[in-house]
């Protein structure tokens, strides 16, 4: 391959020609990505959009119904039930998880922790375990009669809480995803912390700031954009909540109903109810909804950052 950036253009025309060559090279590089992006993302999206405009019946076949499926989505209490649950999940689980991630990242970064490398790995390890496996494992822990947690309670003579009951299920799910993703977010924040120039800390120390003060007034503002990234990832992740309900449903089949989360609802509509078209409309609406919420979160935080 030639290295066109090293040649110095002699004229305006030459510059343009070089620019074209550069562009062609760039397109060459992104072509493999674009092929996958279009075939694996754009085409399915368009196909889902197409599907969502039809209705198919066992008797009567497929008919074009325009936006009727969307009208149904926005008046479907089952859709809102799932969405409401996600909202609750979002406002409780995301702050707890990110606070923990930030805390661990600061602790490890402080350099005052013995075996920091081990701790870092230990906290990150759950992320490396596939979600399916971790949910299954937690499912064993939660089992109401012979689960590990109940057994521990019984061993000390206490009655065990039913972690899979209607009341506790969402909390049990939050616990699984916090355990799983706290390490991932910690690593992002930790990496950002490592890139802060150490002169800042020295200056702060000279000004008489203690470690807590440095953490709060220097480190945290410096990694704001990393935290922001974590927030957006977590918001999107929350809307995707699917693995947990789809696996824990075998343990608590009547607690996790078909509309427990919007994605799980869409799955059930498509695979159990054979209402593929409606499922596509739900999925599409959810995608748009997620985009809006992510955008609002982004905007709010940015404004606050500008004011600060």
């Amino acid at each position: 391959m030639t290295a066109p950036t090293l040649t110095v253009p002699r004229s305006r025309a030459g510059f343009k020609a070089q620019q074209r060559r550069l562009n062609a090279t760039a397109y060459g590089f992104i072509t493999p990505f674009m092929v996958f992006f279009i075939t694996m993302l754009v085409v399915p999206i368009l196909y889902a959009l197409y599907l969502s405009l039809f209705q198919s019946q066992l008797i009567g076949g497929q008919t074009f119904v325009g936006f009727a499926n969307y009208a149904q989505t926005f008046t479907d209490p089952k859709f809102y039930e799932g969405l409401g649950r996600i909202g609750l999940y979002l406002v409780i689980q995301v702050p707890i998880m990110l606070a923990l991630a930030l805390f661990f990242a600061l602790v490890i970064d402080s350099g005052r922790l013995k075996g920091a490398k081990f701790v870092r790995l230990a906290i990150f390890a759950p992320y490396a375990i596939p979600g399916v496996i971790s949910t299954l494992v937690w499912g064993y822990f939660y089992g109401s009669n012979f689960g590990l947690i109940s057994q521990l309670f019984h061993a000390v003579g206490l009655s065990a809480p039913d972690l899979l009951s209607q009341k506790n299920m969402l909390g049990s799910m939050m616990n699984i995803s916090t355990w799983e993703f706290v390490g991932y977010n910690m690593i992002i924040i930790y990496a950002a912390l490592r890139s802060i120039p150490t002169e800042l800390f020295d200056a702060a120390e000279m000004d008489g700031a203690g470690q807590w003060r440095i953490a709060w007034s220097v480190k945290v503002p410096a990694v704001r954009s990393a935290i922001m990234l974590c927030v957006i990832f977590s918001v999107i992740g929350s809307f995707q909540l699917f693995t947990e309900p789809s696996l824990l449903v075998t343990l608590a089949p009547t607690v996790i109903d078909t509309q427990y989360t919007p994605t799980y609802y869409a799955y059930n509509l498509a695979f159990t109810n054979h209402e593929t078209n409606y499922a596509a409309a739900i999925a599409f609406s959810l995608g748009i909804f997620t985009a809006i919420v992510s955008y609002i979160v982004q905007l709010t935080v940015q404004r606050r950052a500008e004011r600060a």
């Binding site: 399915p44 889902a48 599907l51 999107i236 995707q240 739900i282 995608g287 997620t290």
Partner: peptide, 13 residues
């Protein structure tokens, strides 16, 4: 965000 939708849509499709 769109990818979120797509996962489900792909399943539906």
């Amino acid at each position: 965000a769109i990818a979120v939708g797509v996962g489900v849509i792909a399943a539906a499709v």
